[in-house]
Design a binder for these strands. Structure first.
Length: 304
DNA sequence: ATGCCTGAAGGGTTCAGA
């Protein structure tokens, strides 16, 4: 479902918007529980596009809960949820076109689940993804995870050259992306087939913009709620922003918003934030005014 | 304890998460 916030004057006209924009992804672990954290965070960080995962809310309930506050902040949204588990969404204030929920040929468990929604925002085809957990290596759910990733790759392959795949991929791309590789031996998120499936997705030409920005650094996006894992920085990097080369080349900043993991009632994941510069001259499409421009034209008093 | 927290559904507990 698609909701319309703000005046909506940019809808459609921003299909080729290539100005600077801030894109974020956040597994909120229940958007209903996270409202007291999400709304202030939107006001503080002011992302132009937000990919949410684990909304755990049906679409009508999402609209009921967030429709008004999001409109007040200038966001349109596309929510794809199922009530109890899973659920993804895209929020945008730089246009929200050609929304597609789910994957037509994607696998289910056994039925299709709400794990991906795509929309074109500011000239970029944005995918908000929540990759299946996998539960145990070689389990049915693990095989479902690998099949789901292959289906995602097939969809992304057909999505043009301005692409971002953002979300909780439930895979630590390399050993440096977990606090203790030895602790994960025999567990999901680090196995060879999972990492290979992720590599196959990236082989379409997608760049892991946070790792590229912070090579060799300790960067995590998820910390277990238990045993003070966050405060000891014992986490994993499983929430990624993957961008096609023309988009990745515009990266001005890429970081994990650890502040959002602190304090009262946080998600167990932190948001990932990526700032894109204006597209270089000569790139596709007309460049229209940035989203910070007034949304409504106010009639000024005319001198007589 | 091997799920140490957190959330959802639904019911007085169980499943899921990574």
């Amino acid at each position: 479902m698609v909701g319309v916030g703000g005046s909506g004057v940019w809808v459609g006209s921003l299909a080729h918007y290539l100005g600077g924009m801030r894109v974020a992804t956040w597994n909120v672990n229940s958007v209903k529980q996270r409202v007291p954290r999400l709304l202030p965070w939107l006001e503080q960080r002011r992302p132009d596009v937000v990919c949410l995962q684990e909304t755990k809310l049906a679409d009508d309930a999402f609209a009921e809960l967030l429709g008004e506050p999001l409109a007040g902040l200038g966001y349109e949204f596309a929510a794809h949820g199922e009530g109890r588990w899973n659920g993804v969404a895209v929020l945008s204030r730089v246009g929200l076109a050609d929304v597609v929920a789910g994957m037509a040929d994607g696998p289910g468990f056994p039925q299709p689940e709400a794990r991906v929604v795509a929309a074109t925002c500011g000239g970029v085809r944005v995918f908000s993804v929540y990759v299946p957990n996998g539960r145990e290596p070689d389990s049915d759910h693990y095989r479902y995870k690998l099949e789901w990733l292959a289906a995602l790759r097939d969809v992304v392959r057909e999505s043009g050259d301005q692409v971002m795949v953002c979300g909780d991929v439930n895979i630590a791309p390399a050993d440096e992306d977990v606090f203790d590789p030895a602790a994960y031996v025999g567990h999901t998120h680090v196995t060879g087939p999972e990492r290979e499936a992720l590599r196959q997705l990236e082989a379409l030409g997608l760049k892991d913009v946070v790792r590229d920005r912070w090579p060799g650094q300790r960067v995590f996006t998820y910390w277990d709620y238990r045993a003070g894992m966050f405060h000891q920085d014992l986490g994993m990097r499983i929430d990624l922003v993957l961008a096609s080369a023309p988009v990745a080349a515009r990266t001005k900043a890429a970081w994990v918003d650890r502040h959002a993991r602190k304090g009262t009632g946080p998600s167990d994941h932190a948001p990932v934030i990526v700032d894109l510069d204006t597209a270089p001259d000569g790139d596709i499409g007309p460049v229209v005014p940035p989203p910070s421009a007034p949304r409504k034209t106010k009639k000024l008093p005319q001198a007589k």
